[in-house]
Amino acid sequence: MTFFLLTVSLLYALFTLTLWVAWLRIPRVLPQLIETDAKTLPFITVVIPVRNEAEQIGNLLDDLNRQSYQNFEVIVADDSSTDATFSIVQQYAQRASFTLRPLALANEKTASPKKRAITQSIRLAAGDLIVTTDGDCRVGPNWLTTIASFYQQTGARLISGPVTFTTEQGIFDSLQTVEFSSLIGTGACTMSLGFPTMCNGANLCYVKEIFTEVGGFAGVDHLASGDDEFLMHKIAARYPDGVRFLKSEEAIVRTQPHRSLRAFYNQRKRWASKWRAYESYLPSLLAIFVFLSNSVPVVAIVGWLAGFLNGNTALVVIGLKAVPEFLFLRQILVFLQKKMSVRVIPLTQLIYPLYVIFFGLAAQGKGYVWKDRKLS
């Protein structure tokens, strides 16, 4: 037992330190366009799938109205909202400085409403590049300029951008910020190491032709989640060097943290349920490895309290997880302009192992509620 606990802990420490070094080696990107002629700049279609976002969608449209990049259009795909979302978008389209195209989706049953919204939007899109975000997000004025600049510099087929939360209002929000930063950082670093594992559809860009080339969401359209990661894996399988992370403060997208435990539970269960559907073994292997690595400290503490594990061994197991993790998370949080959340890392580390075990088991059950709909 002691050998197993120490081995898993050491492997996790090495893994986390590898991510930390990989993060430090990812170059920062400045929003500087190579070509500035509108005729040669990539035309971007921003796709925003929404449902019941009347309170937030206006803020995002205002942000898009202030973009320094001008060569873009926006499609807001409304999935049968029961509030005023669609009418707000229609009214905004009359005064927007950019082309805004409201798209009303049919109120029909589908296994994956978001994939359907994105697919139908892309059919109408005039852009060379597709950029997706969510209706409750906020973006900076150089968001699209930075994406276009990075595309010009790299020719990447898929670009994953950084995502964090808006201003935290309490400890629950701060805990979410730290946890979310670990996902963003891990996704960025595994991309830079050549085996992409995760990304976030709130800040994602891909070449429209490539979406069609890999068959879009075909093969995974029966799954409610994964409009971002499954597509990334399909593109990475065909273009191993074509998936990149955009490390730029100008490209950070901010979204709302969950203010209710129910909403938080349903989202995390939705995320955790994806790992069984991965065709590539690496994301599934990583999910299992993370589950084991977070279970080990719990087992070590229980073993110490029960008297069958030496206290020093338990401390080593905990230290091998906590110290490298702190170094890594601190770097990500500073980049995401969340320095105040650094102080919450120890508390997150205390809670996170129980959280991972809980959602790892919860994901084995089917069904969750998302956007007032029961999905499987």
Rank of each mutant, 00 (worst) to 15 (best):
F195Y: 13
Y239R: 10
M198R: 11
Y239A: 05
G194P: 07
A272R: 08
W271H: 08
L246G: 08
A224K: 02
L231N: 02
S192M: 03
H258Q: 08
E209L: 09
E250Q: 06
V178Q: 10
V253W: 08
S273F: 01
G226K: 02
F217H: 03
S182A: 14
S182R: 12
H258F: 14
K234F: 07
G187Y: 15
F245I: 00
A251R: 13
T190Y: 03
I252D: 11
L204D: 05
V253C: 15
N203E: 12
F264K: 02
F195M: 12
R254C: 08
V178A: 09
R268S: 05
P257K: 08
R254A: 14
E213S: 12
V214G: 15
G226D: 03
T177E: 15
D241Y: 01
I210Q: 15
L223H: 02
Y206C: 05
D227R: 01
W271N: 05
T190K: 05
V207R: 12
V178W: 11
G242D: 06
R276P: 00
S260V: 12
R270Y: 00
D221Y: 00
V207L: 09
D241F: 01
F217W: 04
E229I: 08
Q256V: 12
I235C: 05
S192K: 12
A251Y: 14
A188Y: 02
G185S: 10
V253M: 13
C199H: 03
